[in-house]
């Protein structure tokens, strides 16, 4: 009889478990954050939870497309996402974001005006800047003695098998456009055909594609050069000054990662609370401490140490206007993806 009871209990437990979770729960104290990997320090999340009692579920992605894919597949519901500028532009066009209620953001004034009202969201109705950065070249100067100034030097024959690049089709295709002297947002068929041979040569020399943490392979000594996010290069520089950051001579672009609230969000109120929390100078400084991208928060920048501000990958000295990505539309994005798949498998 004892065994019978055990089995019945087991069955009941199963039933309870499923029914309990089958019913959609309306928890007030939650925030489902969907953001880039290596971008939001745990200390910030813990601090927010401690202050407000709101539990933060932090899920990560490694590209704007990955974020969109998960969002569009349906099913999962997120309250706050972190799209890069060009993805946000597309989302706004397709009515996938809800407007930000700016009156709820008491710390909004901390943001530097130069990062507001940019082309992706001219009236700044749907997004709030999170971090800004560049994509550039990092060089292990102990192993690479010749100067590396641009894409042509980076992908030179002698560096074959020593290069890590972002696993991001748009970034790579853009670099190829720059070397051809073309506009970075013009992916006409003609331009795509032109970048193809350039990328084909480059891909033969690349050792590793990694968007999540390109710094790892550089630190481990598996590669000596990389085309990486500025923040990753800044971390490398912090670790060892032998890692030098270069903005490519042929052209470089700046990206703005934004905070936005997707249409199906359940906890809009909590999302606003979180955005406002992030905008506090002392919180924003915590982010810069861990992930040294360019901080668009003017008040937070005042709190940074001289060393942090001197990091050439976080605050590069720019003598020209940096470009930004624009939404290309669906067809061009699909074509870039096909091109990259083709090239990666051409060997």
């Amino acid at each position: 009889m004892k065994k019978l009871r055990h089995l019945i209990l087991l069955g009941l437990a199963a039933l309870c478990a499923t029914t309990a979770f089958a019913a959609p729960k309306k928890k007030k104290g939650e925030l489902n954050l969907f953001a880039w990997s290596e971008y939001v320090p745990q200390a910030v999340l813990d601090g927010f939870t401690e202050e407000t009692g709101i539990k933060v579920n932090y899920e990560t992605y490694a590209s704007g497309e990955e974020m969109l894919a998960k969002l569009q597949a349906g099913g999962a519901r997120y309250d706050l996402i972190q799209p890069p500028d060009y993805v946000a532009e597309a989302m706004i066009k397709n009515d996938l974001l809800v407007p930000i209620q700016r009156e709820k953001l008491t710390n909004y004034g901390n943001l530097l005006p130069e990062y507001l009202g940019m082309p992706h969201d001219p009236e700044q109705r749907y997004t709030v800047p999170y971090m800004v950065g560049t994509v550039g070249i990092v060089v292990n100067t102990e192993r690479v003695k010749d100067p590396v100034l641009g894409y042509a030097d980076l992908f030179a024959e002698k560096h074959a098998g020593r290069i890590v690049v972002l696993d991001d089709g748009r970034e790579l295709a853009t670099a190829a456009l720059y070397t051809l002297g073309k506009n970075l947002n013009d992916f006409s068929d003609e331009n795509l055909a032109a970048v193809k041979p350039v990328l084909a040569t480059w891909f033969k020399r690349v050792k590793l594609f990694d968007s999540d943490s390109p710094k790892t392979a550089l630190l481990n000594g598996d590669v000596d050069l990389g085309l990486v996010w500025g923040g990753e290069a800044a971390l490398l520089w912090k670790e060892d000054k032998k890692f030098q950051y270069v903005l490519p001579a042929e052209g470089a672009h700046m990206f703005v990662d934004l905070l936005g609230i997707p249409k199906r969000a359940k906890n809009v109120e909590n999302a606003h609370l979180f955005i406002d929390y992030i905008l506090r100078p002392e919180v924003s400084k915590l982010i810069s401490d861990d992930f040294p991208y360019t901080n668009p928060n003017g008040a937070a920048r005042k709190l940074l140490s001289a060393d942090q501000l001197a990091n050439p990958a976080s605050y590069p000295k720019v003598d020209r206007k940096l470009d930004t990505f624009r939404d290309l539309g669906d067809a061009a994005a699909a074509k870039i993806d096909e091109l990259i798949t083709d090239l990666k498998n051409a060997r």
């Binding site: 969109l68 894919a69 089709g169 050792k207 590793l208 993806d337 798949t341």
Partner: peptide, 22 residues
């Protein structure tokens, strides 16, 4: 493999996570 060598699993995964082509 450093994401250089694509296998069929990678391609399927990419369609769902990167290429937005379910």
């Amino acid at each position: 493999g450093g994401a250089r060598v694509s296998m069929i699993g990678n391609v399927i995964h990419n369609q769902f996570t990167k290429a937005l082509n379910l």
